[in-house]
Amino acid sequence: MIIDQEKCIGCEQCIEYCPMSAIRMEDEKANINQDLCAECGNCYRVNVCPTDAIFRNELVWPRTIRNIFSDPISVFQETGVSGRGTEESKTNDVTNRFNKGEVGFTIDVGRPNAGGVKLREVEKICLQLSSRLDIHYDPNNPLTYLMEDPKRGELKNDVLDEFVVSAIIEFKVPLDQCPEVVKVLENISHHIDTVFSIGVISRVDEDGTIPAAKILEKEGIQIRPNGKTTLNLGRA
């Protein structure tokens, strides 16, 4: 995103809309710090500029990544899904991506509201996970497309310094490995300069019990009351 310095009247109204705090006043004009801008488009979309000074510039690789991961309306062409992740468990009633005996993980790095994250920090988590467990990253997740070596969880060199609002690491493991994944994540949480939120995906048994919840609780891992429940209504 760019602010046309000729048009900007310095009213400062756009500043508070930036989730990355990338808009700053310089010589009485608002200016977007290009290192911090995640190309989310929030400042442009809200139409707050009285002189239409904010505009989208054409992005080239690897900066295009910022927009794909950060703009909620941006669609990742390879999967047709908007946003930085996949449909994960939301359409599991149709796809059965997560079967009984399996557990999915959605690790939202940089969320909530940590002021953005460099993909280098995301890679730290992937490298650690892959060094400890046999992780198969979701092939439809935009992050997996950026991996040089998905077996090692290693990202391509030219994307590591890209700054995004957040990124989601998605994979699934056998049910019994679920606590081990959480332990690895707990461990790395002390060595990264961002936050991440963990989601654990599990099928629900006929009697309403959740196999993954049983295993996690047995290990003393706390589960929040909130969850995202897919109903049994979708069909191919």
């Binding site: 999915g104 994540l185 995906i201 629900v204 929040r224 909130n226 969850g227 109903l231 049994n232």
Partner: peptide, 30 residues
């Protein structure tokens, strides 16, 4: 999305079943 135990109760009341749930373990890191 919401408190999944409350959601399960609501589904039961209207004759629907949960298929899959994505549970939150909360926030980690700095």
């Amino acid at each position: 999305s919401g408190n999944y135990k409350a959601v399960f109760d609501i589904l039961k009341e209207i004759g629907l079943k949960p298929h899959t749930v994505n549970m939150s373990l909360g926030i980690y890191g700095n």
